[in-house]
Simulated scan of single mutants.
Amino acid sequence: MAALIRLRGVTKRYGEGEAAFDALKGIDLDVEAGDFLAVMGPSGSGKSTAMNILGCLDVPTSGRFLFRGHAVEALGRDERALLRRRYLGFVFQGFNLLSRTTALENVELPLLYRGEGRRERRAAAMAALHHVGLAPWADHTPAELSGGQQQRVAIARAIVTRPDVLLADEPTGNLDSERSVEIMGLLTRLNAESGITVLMVTHEPEMASYARTLVHFRDGLVERVEGRA
């Protein structure tokens, strides 16, 4: 597998002078195309900061961030937004669905931002809902769906643009054990069948066990990387 993402000596400092805080202290990390990677570590370890940088939601203070060989740290705000829109999908713990719109309309949103036509949006959104097993619930609002179903809608929204990378921040954090297993099974299938690279932050070892690569953060550094067979 070719390296899709490469971090070299990445630091992130917040504040100045005596109030300065180094959230990342010079991390190196390679993410291979098609991998399923779980990021773990205690609160304050730097894992969320690293994921924000990987998702182009923040920029490093210093160091290199290469995506497909291109220097992301040199991009402007608009260029990073374009990279997010074209290549990245996001799934959050809190689902972040619009409460007064249907599942189908929620999934259409990224395509609306891209300026795609209504017919194309509708067809792609229905295909994404079908992929996560929710086509029959396309006309239901979030209030009419279970937590697991809402997270599947959120995943459909994340994959409707056919991203290279899916970034999932505690995707099972608001779900019970049965729904958590359901969502992890879905992420595993997406990774295996569609080749989407999955980067997931989790505190739960049971959820991390679905990943092929485990990255442990501590005190702003990558403590260790474990590969699974």
Rank of each mutant, 00 (worst) to 15 (best):
G9H: 02
T11A: 15
E18P: 09
D22Q: 01
K25Q: 14
K25F: 02
G26C: 04
D28Y: 03
L29N: 10
G34I: 03
D35C: 03
A38S: 10
G41P: 07
G41V: 11
G41W: 05
S43E: 07
S48R: 00
S48Y: 03
N52E: 05
G55W: 04
T61Y: 01
E79S: 11
R80H: 13
L83A: 02
L83Q: 01
L88I: 14
F90Q: 07
F90C: 04
F92C: 08
F95E: 08
S99T: 14
L112A: 10
L112W: 12
R114G: 15
A124F: 08
D139W: 08
H140I: 01
E144H: 11
S146Q: 08
G148A: 11
Q150R: 15
R152Q: 01
V153K: 01
I155S: 07
I159K: 07
V160L: 05
V160F: 05
T161S: 14
T161L: 08
A168V: 07
G173R: 03
G173S: 02
S177Q: 13
E178Y: 04
N191K: 05
A192W: 00
A192I: 01
I196Q: 04
I196M: 09
M207A: 07
A208K: 06
A208M: 09
G220S: 01
E226I: 12
